[in-house]
Amino acid sequence: MSRIGKKPIELPQGVKVTFGDNLFTVEGPKGKLSQDYKPHVTFAQEGNVVTVNRVDDSKPSRSYHGLYRNLLANMVEGVSKGFTKNLVINGVGYRAETKGNIVTFNLGYSTQIEYVVPEGVEVKIDSNTKVAVLGIDKQKVGQVAAEIRGLRPPEPYKGKGIKYEEEHIRRKVGKSGVK
């Protein structure tokens, strides 16, 4: 039995889950998300607790059991609390600024980089060097944060670039001069 799949999901107050024909929808105070699913699993709701059960013990059913339970749990957390990824920009003259849904980065290249923020995700910038990616869809928030980090990944010698706030960059020793 899947350890993740058999955990029940508690719904916070104000969150409503509906299960339709191969589609489940989660509505909450921050928004609405929906996800289609394979018929290898079934959902049961009793009060404010949702459980995910598999139809049989076949390999695909076992695989989808934990997957759909986790997707549903992330959707419930997203519409109630939301997700945040924090990025830090390191380097002399490296900065970011936002205009509408376009974020402009100065990252030491000869030109500025303009990143268009997709719908459903919000980017906030604090003190030109701290970037916060916010949204209700965990996958979109992570993807946008990874794309922004990919504009200038941190380098191991001086640590210049864009990194996640909790990320630790392993530093290398530079070459020592000839004596």
Results as ranks from 00 to 15, higher is better:
Q139S: 15
N70V: 15
G142V: 05
G108V: 00
T51D: 01
R170I: 13
D56L: 05
Y68H: 07
E46F: 11
E46K: 12
D56R: 05
E166K: 15
A96R: 03
V133R: 02
T111K: 12
K158N: 08
K130V: 10
V178T: 12
M1I: 14
T51S: 11
F43L: 15
V52E: 03
P156F: 03
G174C: 10
V17K: 01
L23D: 09
G66P: 08
V103E: 00
I9W: 04
G174D: 09
S34Q: 12
Y37E: 03
G78I: 01
S176P: 12
K7F: 07
V41S: 03
P12H: 05
H168Q: 07
T84S: 08
K124L: 15
S61E: 04
T98A: 15
V55W: 02
Y37R: 02
P29S: 13
K30I: 06
N101S: 15
Y164G: 06
K140Q: 11
H40I: 10
V178K: 13
K163Y: 07
I136Y: 03
P29Y: 05
T42N: 12
T84D: 01
R54V: 01
P8A: 10
K99D: 13
P154Q: 04
T25R: 03
S58E: 08
F43P: 04
Q35R: 14
K59L: 14
G31F: 09
E119I: 11
F19A: 11
N101M: 13
Y37F: 14
I125K: 05
K16T: 14
I148N: 00
V173G: 06
E165N: 11
Q35W: 09
A145K: 00
T129C: 04
Q139N: 12
V88T: 12
N101W: 08
I148E: 00
L107R: 00
A73C: 11
V141C: 05
I148C: 01
V131K: 00
S61H: 06
R171W: 02
S63N: 13
I9L: 03
G177H: 13
E147Y: 11
V52M: 04
S80W: 05
E114C: 09
G100Q: 12
N86L: 15
L134N: 03
T51E: 03
K124Y: 13
S2I: 09
V178I: 14
G14M: 04
E147C: 11
K32T: 12
T42G: 04
R54G: 06
K81Y: 11
N106S: 12
V116H: 09
V123S: 05
K99A: 15
G28W: 00
G31Y: 06
E119G: 06
S176M: 15
Y115D: 07
P118M: 07
S58M: 09
